[in-house]
Amino acid sequence: MPDEPISWDHLKKREPTQADRDTLRAELVDRAVTVRRDGWADHRDTWTAGDAAGVAYLLGDTAVLEELEEPEGSVLTRYAGSLYGFNGARKDITAGLVGTQAWFDSARKELDSRSPRTAE
């Protein structure tokens, strides 16, 4: 008996709310604050590669993004799906991911207000 085809319709209909986006931003910023304070060593292996890439992108840590083999576009595309759902992400991708980039910009401002960058 053949397997039933996988249906992704339930994901296509998912539309994250502003509260969902705020929760995602808070989690991402909390993780970035932790990395700024403690470094990556205790966290890289406990977070998924996608979560680590999001934190690295937020921090502007190109070395970690390279280690994860995650270019900016893949991080932004993944987060577009989490922020806007399937259909909304498609629209944001077509528009050049401007909504997702703006979301990361606001998360960076929050991060910098909570954990100012230190001189290297």
Rank of each mutant, 00 (worst) to 15 (best):
W40Y: 08
D38Q: 10
L97R: 11
H10V: 14
D42Q: 10
A63Y: 04
G81H: 15
T46H: 12
A52V: 11
A32T: 05
A119M: 08
D92Q: 04
R44D: 01
T17F: 11
G81A: 10
L76V: 09
R108L: 03
K91C: 04
G39C: 08
P71T: 05
A49I: 12
E69S: 13
T46Y: 07
A119D: 10
L65H: 04
E15G: 03
T77I: 03
R114A: 07
A56P: 03
E67T: 11
K12S: 09
D61N: 06
K109V: 09
V29T: 07
A95L: 09
A107L: 02
R25T: 12
G81K: 08
E120T: 11
A32Y: 00
H43M: 09
W47C: 06
E4M: 11
R44T: 12
L24V: 07
T62V: 12
E72L: 03
A107Q: 02
G73V: 07
L83S: 08
T23E: 15
R25Y: 03
E69Q: 05
A53I: 11
L24H: 07
D92T: 01
W8F: 15
D51R: 15
D30T: 08
D112G: 02
T17H: 09
R25Q: 15
G54M: 00
S74K: 14
T77F: 05
G60K: 04
S82P: 00
D105S: 11
F104P: 06
T94N: 07
P116E: 03
T100N: 02
G85Q: 09
I93S: 03
E4L: 14
F86A: 13
Q18H: 07
G99W: 05
G50I: 07
Q18I: 10
G39L: 01
G99I: 06
Q18V: 14
R37Y: 04
H43Y: 08
A53E: 00
D3R: 13
A19E: 15
S74M: 11
A80Q: 06
G73Y: 08
Y57P: 00
W103Y: 06
V75E: 09
V75S: 01
W8M: 12
Q101R: 15
R90I: 09
A19Q: 15
R44N: 00
P116Y: 06
A80S: 15
S7P: 01
Y79K: 02
D61R: 02
Y84E: 06
P16R: 13
R37P: 02
A95V: 04
K13V: 11
T118D: 10
L11N: 11
D51G: 14
A53G: 11
W8S: 10
V98S: 11
A52G: 05
T17E: 09
E120G: 13
D45Y: 09
E27H: 13
A102F: 08
E110R: 06
T46K: 13
W40N: 01
D105Y: 05
D105F: 06
R36E: 00
L76N: 06
D9T: 12
P16C: 12
F86Q: 03
D30M: 00
G54A: 01
A107P: 07
W8Y: 13
L11G: 09
D9M: 10
P71F: 10
L83N: 03
D9I: 13
R37C: 02
P16N: 12
G85R: 06
D38P: 00
K109W: 01
D42N: 13
W8P: 00
D3L: 14
Q18M: 09
D30N: 14
D92K: 08
